[in-house]
Design a protein around this nucleic acid. Structure first.
Lengths: 207, 207
DNA sequence: GGCCCGAAGTTGACATTGTCAAGACGCCCG
DNA sequence: CGGGCGTCTTGACAATGTCAACTTCGGGCC
């Protein structure tokens, strides 16, 4: 609880992770400043170094946390309860986008190894990727025997990751405006349509 | 000509753009430093400010140059000479990836508006996107009358952009290694397969 | 042809940042 | 109750982005 002595924070690592994700979500991973994070957490500017080695270490921790949240979402009970692999893949697509828009600070650093030089996220990314390959494997077994699972997984991962990346660029409020015409689709409707296209592409490539 | 007086550089803006793209390609857009660029161009640390307002202005110039190169590649004579719209789309996918891997410094900043706050790339991005929508429109007219062109364009753009983004993360030397199994496909082979899937997805969604 | 004004580049300064070394604080185990 | 160690602070340093003032060049105008 609120300790009278402020010298020991209690759970500074988690507070720093949260403040970092929040700050990056506001100003981006470049403008993000280690000292500002310390300020928000109410500690001195050098305190973060005792828990995370340096700036890169703190960003790495946020990236790993993001991959874990993604893995949890892609492998949730709700999703694993879906038997039809095509429906499950669509649900995973929706879940992916939901996690991305719900954790902008995390996703801003998850695919940027240059932000934590000489370190990596371990197998956190591979675990999340495995959630997708599992579903693609089901699709291959049931619907598309000749499908290359790895290429198929890269296909759907690229699609959904590209959508997330582009949506952060193109518009605000979930709407896109590109060129003369404006794409007025909600992002939810868009991911629905794109999932449909992706599934047909997968199946046609494997039969 | 090697001017005897070094005071006036001759074409400093272009030299700075080139040095910036090169440096970003080496160390990423975050570690990139304005003073280092000036050093490489052989000018003093404040010289860039006279041509590009500040750090963001220089990065913005590189981003716009990248969009222009992309537009040129997607609308090259070779590509426009391809009559079959499906073949043309596949060629544009290949061209997109080629430009991306050939200009890593540019692509590292093209979809990052947070790197140039309060500024934007104008219509440079929309022009490139238009090259794709043109081809998708052909596909709709000839093969898939009910296809939503904008959604289809977002689909293929997301896919190819996601592939580019992920390829920068997953591996070196054009190979991917994910999880236990390793995806040994060359990126060229991968984009070929993915184009195939994308086209089938588009057509099935529009008929 | 000479001048001169503005473009192009330099120098110096300042606040901010990331990192490191050294020290202060407080809890826990003996 | 005393010492040790994890936790946090303080102070310092080099590097960075940006601003203001200064210097140098070159082309246009009379």
């Amino acid at each position: 609880m609120t300790s009278s002595s402020t010298y020991h924070h209690g759970d500074l690592p988690n507070a720093l992770r949260a403040a970092t994700a929040e700050l990056i979500g506001e100003v981006g991973p470049t403008a993000f400043s280690l000292r500002e994070v310390a300020r928000r957490a109410g500690v001195s500017h050098a305190a973060p170094a005792h828990h995370f080695r340096d700036k890169g270490g703190l960003i790495l921790a946020v990236a790993i946390e993001g991959f874990e949240r993604l893995s949890d979402a892609l492998g949730s009970d709700d999703i694993l309860a879906i038997d039809d692999p095509v429906d499950r893949l669509a649900a995973q697509g929706r879940a992916y986008v939901e996690v991305a828009v719900g954790n902008p600070g995390h996703f801003a650093v998850m695919f940027r190894p240059e932000l934590y030089p000489d370190r990596d996220t371990g197998d956190a990314g591979a675990v999340a990727f495995g959630r997708l390959t599992d579903t693609i494997t089901l699709i291959r077994d049931q619907l598309a025997p000749d499908l290359d699972v790895m290429k198929g997984a890269m296909f759907v991962w690229s699609m959904v990751q590209g959508l997330v990346g582009l949506s952060a660029v193109l518009g605000e409020d979930g709407k896109f405006e590109v060129g003369d015409e404006s794409l007025e689709a909600e992002i939810g409707e868009l991911i629905e349509q794109m999932s449909h296209m992706a599934v047909h592409g997968l199946i046609s490539a494997g039969t």
